[in-house]
């Protein structure tokens, strides 16, 4: 299996612009590397949510210098591994919390927390572990 690798360097807290540039680089390399027509939109959406989440939750002291994105394309699924040395997070708890919020009345309309809804809806598998001070998130997206 051929794994591709891309590093996204974060220079400041909430460095969403670097994430955006990283996604652009990913899309270019993904388009050049794939041998068949695959809709990249769900993949970009999931990666954007995860990468922005990592960039969002590091303050100045705990900001990871870089996020490492590895990916591979299989017959009917896209696999990715995203690792960073930022603060620990727990995706499964976030997903559970996001699914609990069902009140969509105007006053209680949420302005955040949509990301984990999107991730859980588009991914077929999500595995997270903390290894030392490194977060490692593995996921699969049907294609």
């Amino acid at each position: 299996m051929n794994w591709n690798e891309l590093e996204i360097r974060l220079s400041v807290a909430e460095d969403y612009l670097s994430v955006r540039h990283g996604l652009q680089e990913f899309k270019t390399r993904f388009a050049n590397g794939k041998s068949r027509d695959i809709d990249v939109n769900p993949i970009e959406l999931v990666l954007a949510e995860i990468l922005n989440n990592i960039a969002e939750h590091g303050d100045h002291a705990s900001l990871p210098e870089k996020i490492c994105l590895k990916w591979a394309l299989h017959k009917n699924r896209f696999s990715a591994e995203i690792s960073d040395a930022g603060v620990e997070y727990s995706p499964l708890e976030k997903i559970r919390a996001a699914k609990k919020h069902k009140d969509t009345s105007f006053d209680n309309l949420p302005e955040g927390g949509f990301g984990w809804h999107i991730i859980s809806a588009l991914c077929s598998d999500i595995h997270y572990r903390r290894h030392g001070n490194i977060n490692i998130l593995k996921l699969q997206i049907p294609v």
């Binding site: 955040g112 809804h117 999107i118």
Partner: peptide, 12 residues
């Protein structure tokens, strides 16, 4: 392209 932050901004 829109992500969850963009959606949150529209709701806001």
């Amino acid at each position: 392209f829109i992500d969850s932050s963009g959606l949150g901004a529209i709701v806001s």
